[in-house]
Design a protein around this nucleic acid. Sequence first.
DNA 1: ATCGGTTCTGTAACTTGTTCTAGATTAGCG
DNA 2: CGCTAATCTAGAACAAGTTACAGAACCGAT
Lengths: 210, 210
Amino acid sequence: MGHMTSEHRPALPATPPLTERQEARRRRILHASAQLAGRGGFDAVQMREVAELSNVALGTLYRYFPSKIHLLVATMQDQLQHMHTTLRKRPPTESDPGARVAQTLMRAFRAMQREPHLADAMVRALTFADRSVSPEVDTVSRLTTAIILDAMGLDSAATPEQLSAVRVIEHTWHSALITWLSGRASIAQVKIDIETVCRLIELTGPQRPE
Amino acid sequence: MGHMTSEHRPALPATPPLTERQEARRRRILHASAQLAGRGGFDAVQMREVAELSNVALGTLYRYFPSKIHLLVATMQDQLQHMHTTLRKRPPTESDPGARVAQTLMRAFRAMQREPHLADAMVRALTFADRSVSPEVDTVSRLTTAIILDAMGLDSAATPEQLSAVRVIEHTWHSALITWLSGRASIAQVKIDIETVCRLIELTGPQRPE
DNA sequence: ATCGGTTCTGTAACTTGTTCTAGATTAGCG
DNA sequence: CGCTAATCTAGAACAAGTTACAGAACCGAT
């Protein structure tokens, strides 16, 4: 009896609909994860502590998130959603697409500077994830791409070259974050790297001026 | 007791000279690490196995490499040295600096395709490393920079802009590798990303004012 | 309200990175 | 050579991620 509930299954193996209590549990878990991560970074997110803090048994935690990496990547999804809606409220002011992307990424970067431990936990999990987490990491990647494309302010679809540039920007964004988080690059350095890579956008097949 | 010779300096610099047997032990450890990594990637490098395979006690292994991450980053240093000398023997044939860098990185990439498990172990360790491994990761970064600068064929010193471009290329290189290793990007995709980012070099010519 | 299957809980066990300890071995030096 | 300090070995012990399992609680359908 497949009713017509809003159920699209393009990718994931049909997430069974969660009851209210289950949704609440999921929330509590993600909240506890972000809280612990914000306090002490990747290492401070200990599965036993997450379970206790969210009033859930350890086994249940693992039923919701099959590994610590899954949990932290899901936490990043959550935070990115917030970031995306926040950024949409105040679109970048620059006129150049490249400059707009750089401005947006620097805003995101400043948000991370406010919670460096949380950023550490999420980014480390993201880059450490192996194939078993690919779908979730891909979701994060798509979110990041959406944020960048938003910043570019494209009316029409992006060209393949532009998409390549966006992917390179994402690469630089993640890797620059890592070097900053591990203390091997300064904030100024990250800024320069972001601005440098955003110049790629100017190079690519620009939207034809009308 | 307190002799003038540097004894247990908590800091980085002066590695006390190793005896021959110690040098041999270090070699055996690195060899065992690469061997296990080549077989099954990051997870297959288990400290107890490394110790046994290199005929060294577990405590000794930890004296030489204070963590699994340190060990794998050192393994990467080792492999990169090889790669550097190998690449030097056959410099890139392209004429454009950007194309030369892309060609060189694609060669390195093909080498990794021959040992994907080893690449996995090394790259995952590199990006997962925290502050305690910063000096070692920095060494790897300097090696990579040297390879890229070599490929550019610079006679004189690079300009700051060029150095920024090189850093962005490094970011892209690492991150693209990760997406490939975790199965989220194809080999062709990585190639495109490398070629895309290498276009930055053309932008930053030292003898080009505009 | 009751039944049957699923989910959740509490807890123990297992895995692997890391630390610690006591004794054997080695290196450097007079 | 013989001494002393450093290093190495073997093994236990600890920490945190992960798995396993028995019983309680919950959900949906009858």
